[in-house]
């Protein structure tokens, strides 16, 4: 087992001839929280989608637990222990909450411990446990986000990729969400967090990278939250 859990090595992704991510390198160690901030179009979501195998790399390599996953299919990557909570949540609105959660179980490498994990996420997000027979589309925005995270968690991931989990949520709901993320981190799940809310992210993550136009321009630590200059850069990418 290598010290690094997830490693992006000079990764480039493009759409047609338009580069979306250029020569990006970063690492996530087991149990670590790494933030990724930057303005719209900076390449954050593309990076997560590329890790998950949804986009093919133009150059570079992605390793998980020391093994290259750059050419693998998303479902195989999921079973290795990578889980993505996509932007916009992508829950199944016409399915019950229960069915949405059951879909998360497909990403497990083994059925063992499934019940324990289900119980854990229900404790973590009580609102979901209470509405398991309802259609997921009827949940509030915050609850849908919780469901999307819960669905990712029951796949027993070693790293959780979160794409703008706070988008469109009220500030109080965001606080609850970050409390949950802290609990997830304390369970030993590493988190790669893409966010627009730079302040919150920098304070929460062990390291936060700032992307601009597909390039990594700056790396911040939690101590930088008080450094106005550096935070300004983080906001404006």
């Amino acid at each position: 087992m290598s010290r690094v859990l997830l490693e992006l090595d000079h990764v480039s992704v493009s759409y047609g001839s338009v580069p979306a991510v250029r020569d990006l390198s970063l690492e996530v160690a087991p149990g670590e929280v790494v933030g990724l901030v930057g303005s719209n179009g900076a390449g954050k979501s593309t990076t997560l989608a590329a890790i998950m195998g949804v986009h093919r790399l133009a150059a570079g390599d992605i390793k998980f637990e020391g093994i290259s996953i750059a050419k693998e299919q998303p479902d195989a990557i999921a079973r290795r222990g990578v889980a993505l909570v996509p932007e916009g949540r992508h829950i199944y609105p016409d399915f019950t909450v229960e069915d949405n959660l059951r879909l998360g179980l497909l990403g497990r490498s083994t059925r063992e411990g499934a019940d324990r994990d289900l119980e854990w996420v229900r404790r973590l997000f009580p609102a979901i446990a209470d509405s398991s027979k309802r259609m997921a589309g009827l949940l509030s925005g915050g609850q849908q986000q919780q469901l999307a995270i819960a669905r990712a968690l029951v796949s027993d991931p070693r790293v959780l990729l979160l794409d703008e989990p706070s988008l469109g949520l009220a500030p109080s709901v965001v606080d609850t969400l970050f409390d949950a993320l802290a609990e997830i981190r304390d369970k030993g799940v590493a988190i790669l967090l893409v966010e627009q809310r730079a302040q919150l992210t920098v304070a929460f993550a062990d390291r936060t990278h700032v992307l601009r136009n597909g390039d990594l321009v700056l790396t911040l630590g939690p101590e930088d939250v008080v450094d106005t200059d550096r935070m300004t850069q983080a906001y404006f990418g």
Binding site: Y15, G16, N40, T46, V54, G88
Partner: peptide
């Protein structure tokens, strides 16, 4: 749609780019 020049970043997931 992945080839669309105007979109520098497709947020979320792009269904057209999933198949091998």
């Amino acid at each position: 749609p992945g080839g669309g020049a105007g979109r520098s970043e497709v947020e979320g997931v792009d269904p057209s780019a999933t198949e091998q």
